[in-house]
Nucleic acid binder design. Structure first.
Lengths: 353, 353
DNA sequence: TTGAAAGCGCTAACAA
DNA sequence: TTGTTAGCGCTTTCAA
């Protein structure tokens, strides 16, 4: 009965394979082992594992028992090879240490896990070369899809489903054939500026970081719209790096040069903290003399002294939309292009009291 | 010349396979495609890819050119199946949102990437059930190794190399057959308490979180040793959750009940911030009336107002030791058991001025 | 230096 | 309801 298999997988070739790979390895248990122990064929075992029907209740019970007993874990690699589908999603992220990205990636991972997908997180540290290397690895791994939080546009990724999230890709046009999920940064900037205006601020400056990031641009645009509505002058301070030290330095320079803002809209919470450090050194009180808003509603915003009014993006919604869009497309139901813009809201705290 | 292959992979079976899987899929390029275009055998292409020698310079150039031209990415899944080695490492982490864990995982990922390993990050949210599910997935994926940052001991993971890091496994004994990498928490607690003593504090209380975590216990032990050396009484406050709100609440209760510490050793920076929030509400000044130390030297510690003296663990060293130990063992050179304890140091800031 | 072919563990078409 | 078997893309042995 088993004679026909001898040629391909004869008993004599088991413990030590021809090329010697398994010499030190304990006899691996695979679907064939389970089939033999259960007295059925590998096809039946496969059907039970994947619940594809066409087996009896007794057969199923038997197979399950043997699998349990032998602590059998189906080999996903073989399954992936056969199905040309790895059930792995790559996530390209610039900096996982950044709490905003960490939260987003975590939520994406959670959502994917719920759908039985694994997540490979690739940190690029904003390096294009590293991003390219990561992509090559992911393609070699035949990932089912890639989530880009990088802002870089990738054109030649034909065989893999791609979603851009949080940072829109370079040169993005609304009718581009790609999927983009972002939050409403323009409204975020507007809400922050509007809050300061409503509290009576009339000399409002925007503190932003010096990068060409589209999100920052949109936050600035929203800020400008709010000021324009009230016929107030818009002013900006550009910080070289997103660090509190750099922000503190810039704000000191700005004020020493003679400016005296009564409101500060910052494009991240870190910049807001930096601004407060700078102001404190000059003896200027927050919020009495200067009101401040941050962005991201990070843990810092709720804990800092004073607590920081901040624009909150719904990371959970963003992650869910991302995973839904991705899996829809992987499963073949989704359209080529999509553009989701998620709402934001303002969390008011002590810095705008 | 190719006739012999017709039976297994004849041209007529390419565009649409028997089971119809590839109907909508573009003709996949694989090692055979490259071999045909380059006019060599698949064995030769494989040798070039893996630099296994036994090919001429011209052959190599030709093969490389074709691979480049066709944007060919060797299928890692097939390679893994054949080699029974996935070059994927699973990392089990309780909470990737925690900056300490995020940093550690990031560094581990970086180190692994350098050795051409991919990292699958599994967030357990401290749930045993989720941890078990993640492990099953990882075993099915035939990962080359698993890094546990979970504190749970796993006994039946025979076929996979395991390293425990940052949190030692349950019931760990120094001569256990497992690999443990942790930082010197006892010294951390000692250094923090010692700093306060040196600044003149005599009534020093320890604020810790209510979990059975071994690291916390060691930090407490170190604190107790420092106080014992000076014949000072050790006192502890246990907070239910590691949140600033809970810590603030506890410290207020403690002081309202009549205690008046002049020093506070906290087992995390968040607890230190919570303590300061609580003290501020009572009008007690830091560091003038109470000096405080945190732990982890998180971003919070450097940014908070006042900046927080904190115990710094070298995350970089911990990650490198982890990856080195893991790969050593995967490559077959490493011993069964190992126990590495990494040094810590104190970063002094305003809260102990 | 090169090529032919077995086989890693699995799924699914096809036959029974 | 069940079994047999081709083949996913790759590496490596063996033969030339």
């Amino acid at each position: 009965m088993e004679a026909g298999l001898e040629g391909r997988n004869g008993e004599e070739s088991r413990p030590v394979m021809k090329d010697g790979r398994t010499i030190a390895m304990r006899d691996r248990i695979n679907i064939k082992t389970i089939a033999e122990k259960a007295g059925v064929s590998v096809a039946t075992v496969s059907r039970v594992i994947n619940q594809n029907g066409r087996f009896s209740a007794e057969t199923e019970a038997m197979v399950r028992r043997v699998m349990e007993e032998m602590d059998y874990h189906p080999n996903t690699i073989a399954k992936s090879l056969r199905e040309n589908h790895s059930r792995i999603i790559g996530v390209i992220v610039p900096d996982i240490m950044n709490a905003h990205f960490a939260g987003l990636v975590l939520e994406i991972e959670k959502n994917l896990f719920r759908h039985a997908y694994s997540t490979v997180i690739c940190n690029t540290n904003e390096s294009d070369a590293l991003e390219r290397k990561h992509i090559d690895t992911l393609l070699s791994q035949r990932v089912s899809g890639i989530v880009f939080i990088s802002g870089k546009r990738h054109y030649s990724l034909d065989d893999v489903t791609v979603v851009y999230v949080d940072r829109r890709p370079d040169n993005y046009e609304i009718d581009d054939d790609c999927v983009v999920i972002e939050s409403d940064n323009e409204s975020g900037g507007y809400l922050a500026a509007r809050c300061l205006i409503d509290k009576g601020c009339r000399n409002i400056t925007m503190l932003y970081a010096n990068n060409t990031d589209h999100n920052q641009k949109m936050r600035i645009a929203g800020y400008e719209r709010a000021l324009r509505e009230q016929a107030l002058a818009a002013r900006t301070i550009c910080v070289d790096t997103i660090t509190a030290v750099a922000a503190a330095e810039k704000i000191r320079e700005y004020i020493r040069a003679g400016s005296r803002p009564d409101g500060l809209v910052c494009t991240t919470d870190i910049l807001a903290i930096g601004a407060m450090i700078g102001l404190r050194e000059l003896g200027i009180r927050v919020p009495q003399e200067v009101r401040i808003t941050g962005y991201d509603d990070s843990m810092l915003a709720a804990l800092y002294n004073p607590t920081i009014t901040s624009v909150r993006q719904s990371i959970e919604d963003m992650a869910q939309k991302t995973v839904d869009s991705l899996l829809e497309r992987i499963d073949g139901g989704g359209k080529e292009r999509a553009h989701h813009v998620l709402p934001v809201h303002l969390v008011e705290r002590e810095t705008t009291k």
